[in-house]
Amino acid sequence: MNIFRLAGDLSHLAAIIILLLKIWKTRSCAGISGKSQILFALVFTTRYLDLLTSFISLYNTFMKVVYIGCAYATVYLIYMKFKATYDGNHDTFRVEFLVVPVGGLAFLVNHDFSPLEILWTFSIYLESVAILPQLFLISKTGEAETITTHYLFCLGVYRALYLFNWIWRFYFEGFFDMIAIVAGVVQTILYCDFFYLYVTKVLKGKKLSLPA
């Protein structure tokens, strides 16, 4: 464990908690893409199946359980409890255009052709594009609540910090996972446009609104 990975995990945890609290406190999931949240629940489910097969550390197990629990709780709040506030008209990204190619790629490019490994690879690839429905929704509505931008910022920063974690681990431990690194770079690049808007607008106290 290094400072970048710990900071990344805490940023990821913060994002998940911020989103859950935003929906719970405001009793509304306006501006939130339910499709992205379903993709994240799928990412955690396919990646953390090793909860059943191997124990790495209390920290590892605890975080995985929290991530999975919060992901499904968020999906439940969006599609069941606060369904009336779900913005289905704008949350129209065709997720099958993400899941199918990612599923195919996981079969073609992986470290080992075993079920657990292919599911892990699928989850790594899926996570790198899972935020697209959310970014698409914001581009369609042309704006985002400030709390939602903080959620997105923490979520984007987490994988950027993981990139530094992988540099650190390659340098000090010789650890190196090309699949995770390439997917992590793609994932972070997808946030760059948002990062620019976040820094130039939200941090200056303005509302995040896109040129319609």
Partner: peptide, 10 residues
């Protein structure tokens, strides 16, 4: 490059 694919990351 020494490639190790241990799954100790979240």
């Amino acid at each position: 490059w020494d490639h190790i694919n241990q799954k100790d990351e979240l």
